[in-house]
Design a protein around this nucleic acid. Structure first.
Lengths: 258, 258
DNA sequence: CGTCTTTTTGAATACTGTCAATTTAAGTGG
DNA sequence: CCACTTAAATTGACAGTATTCAAAAAGACG
């Protein structure tokens, strides 16, 4: 059963070419997926890939702003982003939220739910998006028969730990310029890995969301963007970013005279 | 093979009652361990516990200040703290370090190494300490035959993710007093869970290490301790801490008028 | 076309960091 | 046993960075 509080009615927009398929709406075939090198199947031998295919993960479309899951919801699925961008965030006691990550195609969400059997964070689509819903229990069953799959899952969790390490480092020891530079360079790399331009892109998140993620106020984010522009490192037009001086931006990260 | 750069010669102090045992020096029997409810075996059915016992994890003693592993070292073991306290830390490009965690009896270290096959952080004993060295590959082999063990390991990794989440929140949205209060309350809880006083304890780490962990300078840590003392929340004598007003300290966390 | 949200920018404030001096504790060696 | 050295912690004064409050401009959306 889906957790009723969050699993929004799946609005399959324009069921294109779905008449022929016998399966209920869209399911995923990992071995044929264009994201396979970025996603769960990465580094998996083809025989195990076949087993993943057999599961046929259901796809879900979400319009911009829709929540995928919420902290406290029963944990059943991990989600692989197929398209669009998500933010995940934690709620503080007093109602504030802190953004804990942004996720794009091929990245997994929801691994923090394994610990308690309930999601520890919430995930929201920042633009129209699509995910694969991977039933965790099924994945575990499958991986007990496959050392390779087991390792892949463990490695993904560990990668999440490492990712958070670097964010901690950022939050614990960098100033505003270093934080924003790190953020932009990270985004740039991930976009490049997905075949997009590393130099020019559109931010899917607001200044407030960036600030929340980086541990600074939205005004400071805005000022830092302006400062980078004055330094001729960036050209900024609202959410459209052009990295003019990539080495310079990288230096903003390295030259830390703390 | 042990990674020669870090695996210090195991100095088995006083091999007590080891003559009779055929196994090389000290090994662990999880099912009889006084830490079993806090450590890896937590929540594991007894049959799986038996399998853990069969592995007989080697113990290692470390004097204060000795490194257990270093970032970049080949990843082979995860470590369970038996006694003593550890800090784990990340090295920054410019040589600075950031403390990413403190670990005490029953807690696991090294899970961040799974991702790359190399340790992503370093771990150092803050006082004389002892660990169980758990060979990761063996643990994986074992868990492919046991769904319960597999779940336990996954849950532990996920718990690490959640733990880091809360640290991110701390670093991203709290001021100095809130950070230190959160740190002390967390320590207090963990000590209590281990049968120690929740109100009075001895810090194993320096002001600089606390500051690094909390994303503030050592002087600010010191000032905040003094401030808590003036507010009659704590009594502080160097590293000896007495929590005088636990509810008050908790309020320092909740009353965030940001 | 008006409303609402997002972003930018300015000015003043607050908090934390920096630099420096002092105290205390812990070790070292004469 | 005491002088000496070293490391850790505290405290003060000042500087610098980020936050807060406020206002205006620019888009986005219905």
């Amino acid at each position: 059963m889906f957790a009723a509080t969050i699993e929004a009615p799946v609005r399959l927009s324009r069921p294109r070419a779905s008449e022929a398929a016998p399966a209920p709406a869209l399911t995923t075939n990992c071995s044929a997926c264009h994201l396979r090198e970025l996603c769960l199947p990465h580094g998996m031998p083809s025989e195990d890939l076949g087993r993943l295919d057999a599961l046929g993960f259901a796809r879900r479309r979400l319009p911009a702003g829709r929540q995928l899951y919420q902290a406290g919801d029963r944990f059943q699925y991990i989600y692989a982003v197929r398209s669009g961008t998500f933010k995940s965030s934690l709620a503080l006691a007093d109602g504030r939220e802190q953004v804990s990550g942004f996720h794009m195609a091929g990245e997994l969400m929801g691994l923090d739910g394994v610990a308690q059997g309930r999601h520890a964070s919430s995930a929201v689509a920042l633009e129209d998006a699509e995910v694969c819903a991977i039933p965790y229990a099924t994945l575990m069953d499958l991986s007990s028969g496959s050392a390779a799959l087991q390792h892949v899952v463990s490695r993904l969790m560990s990668r999440e730990i490492v990712r958070e390490h670097s964010l901690m480092m950022l939050l614990g020891s960098m100033n505003a310029e270093e934080r924003l530079a790190a953020f932009l360079l990270n985004l740039s790399q991930r976009l490049k890995a997905r075949g997009y331009s590393a130099h020019e892109f559109h931010l899917r998140m607001s200044r407030a969301e960036i600030g929340s993620y980086l541990g600074m106020k939205l005004e400071t984010v805005s000022r830092t963007f302006s400062s980078f522009q004055q330094q001729r490192l960036l050209e900024v037009d609202k959410r459209h970013i052009r990295i003019v001086d990539l080495p310079g931006l990288t230096r903003a990260l390295e030259v830390q005279a703390h």
